[in-house]
Design a protein around this nucleic acid. Structure first.
Length: 174
DNA sequence: CGGGTTTGACCCGCGC
DNA sequence: GCGCGGGTCAAACCCG
């Protein structure tokens, strides 16, 4: 819990994305080398590769949507950092080593696939994630993590590393 | 039996 | 005020 000090309180406006990385993976940061921050170059890349264009658009939309929720005059608003991962996978369930409980599923507009909402089941851990598949590229799955884990992973992460090795990753922070 | 999933209802912010 | 879209709740259900 102490992890969240000054992070979720919103006192610090910078909300370091690096903290998110560290929290995401407790111990060895092996496969996380693939992680990179996504600046505005995101837009630059749009249109370069036709296949990737669609997901880039989707990500952009995602970013815009969440950014709007952060603008509040009464600076008391807590800005919760989110990290969006774009992965290539046949299955929605990407086992990252944590134990998740699904708590909802909604259809999103402009997307024929539903979005699933998961919550970490570790006691006191309020990390959430949502998984979304793209309409045009059903081989692409966007996973958005919200919050940080303040506890160790409960399973061996061999599987996790394996998945990471075949992952194209995009992250955004707010 | 206990924990996770399903699924419709509810809730809330926002734009019209 | 109302409808819409997105996020969450919770009761029923499923499965080991």
């Amino acid at each position: 819990m102490e992890y969240f000090h000054g992070f979720f309180t919103g006192s610090s406006t910078l909300a370091p994305a690096t903290a998110g990385y560290g929290g995401f993976h407790g111990g060895k940061g092996n496969g996380l080398m693939g992680l990179m921050e996504v600046p505005e170059s995101l837009n630059v890349h749009a249109g370069v590769i036709s296949q990737n264009k669609s997901f880039v658009d989707e990500i952009s939309n995602l970013v815009r949507t969440e950014t709007k929720l952060e603008k509040k005059k009464g600076d008391k608003k807590i800005r919760k950092p989110r990290h969006a991962f774009q992965t290539r996978s046949q299955v929605d369930i990407l086992d990252d080593g944590y134990r998740w409980r699904k708590y909802g599923q909604k259809a999103v507009k402009n997307n024929k696939f539903p979005r699933s909402y998961y919550r970490c089941t570790y006691q006191g851990c309020n990390v959430k994630k949502q998984v979304q598949r793209l309409t045009e590229d059903e081989g692409i799955v966007v996973t958005t993590y919200e919050g940080m884990h303040s506890h160790p992973i409960q399973k061996s992460n061999d599987n996790f590393e394996h998945i990471l090795s075949q992952m194209q990753i995009y992250t955004t922070s707010f």
